[in-house]
Amino acid sequence: MSPRRQRNEEFTSYYGRPILKQPTWHALDIAGYIFAGGLAAASSMLGAGAQHSGRPALERSAKLTALTAISASVVALVHDLGRPERFVNMLRVAKPTSPMSVGSWILSVYGPLAGASALSNLTGVLPRAGRAAGVGAAVAGSAVATYTAVLLADTAVPTWHDAHEVLPFVFAGSAAASAGGVAAALSPVVQAGPARRMAVGGAVLETVMSLKMERSGNLSTETLHQGRAGTLLRLSKACTVGGAVGLALGGRHSRLVSAVSGASVAAGSALLRFGIFEAGKASTIDPKYVVVPQRERLEAREAAAAPAVSTQAPAK
């Protein structure tokens, strides 16, 4: 559908009450979890690349970042559960229909790998195994960075679900951008070339895909432009683009520029996650994001089914 199409946004509702329930999640926990997970995952990739390309400083900082970030993300997750003591229930079942179940299993593979590779790197114990774990973490990390997009998209939340086709790419780009940015900030400029490239590449992907998401024409994309979410996403773009430009132009020469720009890209990534979270929430509050598209779909279907006669006109 063309984004310019005039919509009939008049709709009836039940005292303007939401149809959907708002996500029970807290922004800091869940957006934070997704950001930290993405950061960890892409950092593991950097770490693996660094270990194989002989960039020890980059390797150390990336692996430590991965460990710290994944730990933080688990803390956020546990905190968000209404009953943290029951986190253990997560591995009670293995459900392919549940991104959270799949994610839990992915995390349970990734976490120990990331941890092992970081510890081995720090302590020097079992270096071979540590390096193998590093590779494993990189591979598993690719899933950690992207499954969270499915986690959000696989809901009835209009903004998230409507974005399900692009969201994995947005998140992949964003994860890469954040890891690249953080590594660029933390590592010496000489070793940080791949990190800068990852940050810039990630930022490009993140930005392009976000724009695609925002202009998909779905009514729910309104929420990406308005209110808190709109502000967060505009800020996110400024940080991401500004940081990426900084890294691309000055990252190679100045540690300071590198640090500031890297942090900026990472901040852009974090802001993006928060923005998307807030937009989703907003789309559950106003019933129009549920009613209007569904009604259009319904009417289109009815029109297709009975092209000649107009079926019972809904009394508005």
Binding site: L91, R92, V93, A94, K95, P96, T97, S101
Partner: peptide
């Protein structure tokens, strides 16, 4: 009794029925 095992043993691969 671990549901993951019951999923396999009790023909409930998706873990949405009796195994859980």
């Amino acid at each position: 009794q671990w549901p993951v095992l019951r999923q396999l043993l009790e023909h409930d691969p998706s873990g949405r029925h009796h195994s859980v």
